[in-house]
């Protein structure tokens, strides 16, 4: 009871202190955006493999008693589902036109496939044929992997001069930068060339560790290496 009282008093003091200062207390939320479900709702598990694992480990019964959010439209248990592809489609999308974005990405996959099949048929020996990757999704994964930077530069101002200081980068930001650079390179295209074609070329180049985007990543790495003397500015 004492601790309960203490907690109450502390929160009240906290409240009153904040209100005196004129701050509006933001409500505590677990997600960045407002959702239509309260915070205690769990995320849905919609992949068959994950559901199988839950059944095996016996946790399904626990989850069955807990309220769960319904899955979104793009979260399917179908074979087509790939979270990275969905993310790329979302980044390509403008003005909420998901169908258009999806069709563009699918057409670029088709272009990748056709180019790769052509190369496959032109390859002389079976070893070379085996080296050629025909699945466009795997090429996308490889391309994104090759474009992910490992460090990032943050501008830090010391004594009137802004230094570009190299620092660590989170997984999410790294992935975001990779996709953004790929799309930037694609949109820098000729007027006569269509988006799916250009995107296919960029992805193929990036999967091969050549091309504009990989060069941009390598330039960033070089810059980080050059500026490593300023690294301690992060903690000053």
């Amino acid at each position: 009871m004492n601790s309960g009282n203490w907690f109450l008093i502390k929160s009240l003091c906290d409240l009153s202190f904040r209100q005196c200062r004129g701050w509006r207390i933001p409500p505590r939320r677990l997600y960045a955006n407002a959702t239509s479900f309260p915070d205690y709702f769990k995320n849905p598990i919609f992949r068959k493999e994950q559901q199988g694992k839950l059944i095996e480990s016996g946790e399904l019964s626990k989850l069955a008693a807990v309220p769960v959010k319904p899955p979104a439209t793009y979260e399917t248990c179908s074979v087509y589902h790939d979270p990275l592809v969905n993310k790329v489609i979302n980044h390509v999308m403008e003005m909420g036109k998901k169908q258009l974005a999806r069709s563009l990405v699918e057409k670029s996959f088709e272009n990748i496939k056709r180019t790769q099949i052509e190369r496959y048929h032109l390859a002389p020996t079976p070893e070379e044929k085996n080296k050629i990757e025909l699945n466009p999704k795997i090429i996308l994964h490889k391309a994104v992997e090759n474009c992910k930077p490992l460090l990032q530069l943050s501008p830090i101002k010391r004594g009137g001069i802004t230094y570009q200081v190299p620092g660590p980068i989170t997984e999410k930001r790294s992935l975001f930068l990779a996709i953004k650079w790929l799309l930037d390179a694609t949109n820098d295209k000729d007027r006569t060339v269509h988006f799916p074609e250009q995107f296919a070329w960029e992805l193929l180049d990036a999967a091969n560790n050549t091309g504009k985007v990989v060069k941009r990543k390598q330039d960033l790495h070089r810059q980080c290496e050059a500026n490593r003397a300023y690294a301690h500015y992060r903690w000053q």
Binding site: V79, Y80, I117
Partner: peptide, 14 residues
Amino acid sequence: DRLWLRGPPETEIE
């Protein structure tokens, strides 16, 4: 056979 489709057999059902 012509390398146009790949993936597990469930793709065909879908």
